[in-house]
Design a protein around this nucleic acid. Sequence first.
DNA 1: TGTACATCAGTGAACGCGCGTTCACTGATGTAC
DNA 2: TGTACATCAGTGAACGCGCGTTCACTGATGTAC
Lengths: 206, 206
Amino acid sequence: MPDREPAPSESLGERLVEVALKLLETEGIEAITLRRIAREAGVSHGAPLRHFAGLSDLRAEVAARGFRLLSDSVDAAHRGLPAGTGPRARLHAAGVAYVRAAVAHPGLFALMFRPDCLDTSNERFLREAGSAFEQLVRIVQAAQDAGFEPDAEPRVLAGSVWACVHGLASLWSQGALAGAIPGARLEDALDISLRLLLGSEPGEKR
Amino acid sequence: MPDREPAPSESLGERLVEVALKLLETEGIEAITLRRIAREAGVSHGAPLRHFAGLSDLRAEVAARGFRLLSDSVDAAHRGLPAGTGPRARLHAAGVAYVRAAVAHPGLFALMFRPDCLDTSNERFLREAGSAFEQLVRIVQAAQDAGFEPDAEPRVLAGSVWACVHGLASLWSQGALAGAIPGARLEDALDISLRLLLGSEPGEKR
DNA sequence: TGTACATCAGTGAACGCGCGTTCACTGATGTAC
DNA sequence: TGTACATCAGTGAACGCGCGTTCACTGATGTAC
């Protein structure tokens, strides 16, 4: 994903979302206001309302990008694995990718899971969040076919896996884990979590 | 914990915190402002500053109560178990208690993990958060003594367990899990998560 | 090739809001003598 | 038992802030004829 400059052809709506993403990285959630984004984009504060129904609509649109980013990260990690990799190791890699992507974009990640801040009925938000979860369900189902918790309901199992990596990403990216465990390394906690969750799989190729 | 009426002897500082807790239950985080709490307590909006250094100090104080409540819930669940209960089943019960307490107080729970909203250097906040984690470490260590992941570093292991139940509590209490899995029941996800995390323990008394 | 018109993205002044914080004050309470 | 005084929790007016949203407007662009 090259960090392209805003092309002049690009619509203001697009540009505003990108400015918001940049602001999330540099200043965090509280900077995501209509006026601030407009200012940063060099446009009058009324302009964003030509492209979004209101503040929480814009935020939902930004959060939708977050889900897309998460999906893409998981997908990229998946595609990067050697051909013979087992489904369980793939699930493991998906978990790692989720946590890494979240920790790399703490502001965006926080916004995505703050339903009081955004319009959760926004169409693109629902679609991207939904398809990210479906992606996880597919990966989980493949692992189930390979013997991982074969009797569990796939969506519920996927939800449990999601919750676990999500908790890790969330606590880590807000500094709570590092605060409680001085000298902790994310890798260690991630390894333990995923090993506990998925079990060890001595016979499977990774 | 009886829902006692504000005793006239009670200090205003105490009363404000209790009003804040009530507001969190009924209206959520955004209601937690100095002016709103003062209004609700029937006191002028300047009064709270006689008891707290500022808004984020008050919020930290409220969050500290949250950690205490979480600790107490886990503790009560612990004490309620039959005498012969194994350490692994005790860890399981602690996880269940954590999630239940969090889901029962979604506003408070959300506030506790919003470091941008509160003064994380507040003394009581640090103390209560710290002692809640220490409580978990002790429970985890007991499970380790009974053969659960005996070689893991106790604090990191505790962090992993924490992250997992925390993620479940967090996603559930904000409706994300229920949104992704129509008809989902918290109990099911909780059961799967904890079973995956702790493994099954056929020989142990529950 | 021109002319009239509609469309609509972006402007910028204005409104009203609740907020945190400051500050001079009041008035009850307790203490020193 | 009185009197003077200090303390300090709570008051309420005031300040300045950034916010979301409204609204009449401008001016470029494209379309119909």
